[in-house]
Amino acid sequence: MILIISTCEEKLSELEFVKPIEDIVEKDVEKDFTTKHYSQLTKSDAIKADKLIICGNALKDTQYLGGIEKFSFLKDFEKPVLGICAGMQIIAKIYGSEFVEKTEIGIEYINISDKDVLFDNERASVYQFHKRVVKPSSDFKILAKSDTGTVHAIKHKTKTFYGVLFHPESRHKEIIENFLKI
C-alpha cells in the first residue's frame, strides 16, 4: 500500500497537488493507496505502508513549515520515500539540511548527474514553482541541478529516500512511476 501524504494548508489545493499523484498511483493496478493529511499522520500509518509519497503544495503555503516535526519518524524509517517540492524540503530538513529563500516559477532545465532509478535521461525540462530551495546536508547525494544551480533532486546516502523540487506529476510522470517500481 502506498501512503500519499498531503501537505496542503487549504483543502482545495489537494485537487491540484494530491489528486494528480493519486491518479498516477491508481493507474498502477498492483498498487492500492491511502491518503492522509500530515497533521493526522502517525508513525503506525507509515509503518503499515510499503512506500510514502509526500506531496507538494501551493506557492503561498507555509503551514507545513511549522509541522515538520510530524515527520521525525523518518529518522528511523527504512522504506522508500519520495518527497515532491515541499515533500523534498521536509525530508531534507529532517536530516539537517538548510533552506535558502529563492523563488523560481516556470519551466526550467535540469542536468541529471546521477539517474539512479528515478530518471530516464541526463537532461530534462521540468515545471517548478517554489519559494525556498534546499542546501542538502552531507546525508544526501545530489542527483540533479538546474542551470541556475538550484538542487532539484537528492537521494539519502543510505536509505531509499528521494526528493525532487520540481513537479513530476505535471511533467515527467515517469519519475513517479519509476519510484513506484522500487
Binding site: 487549504e10 482545495l12 489545493s13 485537487l15 491540484e16 489528486k19 494528480p20 491518479d23 501551493a58 506557492l59 503561498k60 506529476e169 505535471s170
Partner: peptide, 9 residues
C-alpha cells in the same frame, strides 16, 4: 493564493 482545482484532471 492561486488555486487550479482542475489541474491535470
Amino acid at each position: 493564493w492561486c488555486f487550479n482545482p482542475l489541474w491535470l484532471k
